[in-house]
Amino acid sequence: MTQDIPLTWFLYFASASFAIGLMGVLVRRNPIAVLMAIEIMLNAANINLVAFWRYGTPPPGEGPITGVMLAIFVITIAAAEVAVGIGLILLCYRRWHASDVDRYDTMSG
């Protein structure tokens, strides 16, 4: 066996992706672009989970694939969230005839 990848490298990758996703959420005004950035953040968390599963030592009584199971559930939730998000975006687009987060602003205070 040659040299393996250190755990921290995966974690750095996940953190960097997460930070990029957060930047996208803050920077973009198009709702679909915001949704994409959120997906990046969720994927970053998944990398974390699977890396911790593969490298860590589970305490006694723990299932064999906890991190992977959570990652699978996260993928499911992300799919549901995107479906709901696109539904809401279409609804808002039909109302305002614009896809711009800053223009959905009739309430104030």
Binding site: I32, L35, A78, V82, G85, I89, L90, Y93
Partner: peptide
């Protein structure tokens, strides 16, 4: 993700 989520996002882009 690639088969469903990305396609839904594409539809969203087109429909808006």
């Amino acid at each position: 993700y690639i088969g469903a989520v990305a396609i839904i996002l594409m539809f969203g882009i087109m429909l808006t």
